[in-house]
């Protein structure tokens, strides 16, 4: 993890994610959540942000080769950007449908990969954007406003 403070009270946390690293999976989102709690964000917002982050983090662990997860924490807005190198998503509209999944049987045995991650991120976020190049990777951006 790396950390830097920007002007205007923006705290940036950055983590690298590795494919199928289930021992460390979730650590980035957990650290993000702990920071939000310590900074005094409302519990409902912390929970919503943590769930969106965890879904996004697990997507990289499950589907990509590696990735970088960056959190920008500002008083009025939380920004989560996840960029991965991996197979990408060929049909984003299809991937947004609840129940659609390309996860392996082994991943589904762990209780993940039910095709509910991206729709759940959308539910938790105030704004979400996915850009993907099949065969190269995916960039996911999540915005959560602190109103």
């Amino acid at each position: 993890m790396s950390e830097q403070a920007k002007p205007e009270q923006i705290l940036i946390l950055e983590f690298t994610l590795k494919s199928l690293d289930f021992m460390r999976a979730g650590e980035a989102s957990s650290e993000f959540k702990q920071r939000l709690k310590k900074l005094g964000f409302k519990p409902e917002l912390v929970r919503r942000a943590a769930i969106a982050a965890y879904e996004a983090e697990m997507n990289v662990i499950i589907h990509a080769r590696k990735g970088v997860m960056r959190f920008e924490i500002a008083p009025a807005r939380l920004l989560i950007v996840v960029e991965d190198e991996g197979p990408g998503i060929s049909d984003i509209e299809q991937a947004m449908q609840e129940g659609f999944t390309t996860a392996s049987a082994a991943i589904r045995e762990l209780g993940f990969g039910a095709g509910m991650g991206l729709p759940n991120i959308k539910r938790c976020a105030d704004a979400m954007d996915i850009q993907s190049i099949p065969g190269q990777g995916t960039r996911l951006q999540i915005i959560i406003n602190n109103e």
Partner: peptide
């Protein structure tokens, strides 16, 4: 786990047959 992440509310008791470490991470999140 996907069901827990979609459905669970805070301060809920979870009953599960899964025992791997991701259950605890999910409970924390």
């Amino acid at each position: 786990i996907s069901d827990i992440l979609v459905m669970c509310k805070e301060h809920t008791l979870l009953l599960t047959g899964m025992t791997h470490i991701q259950i605890v991470k999910t409970a924390e999140i």
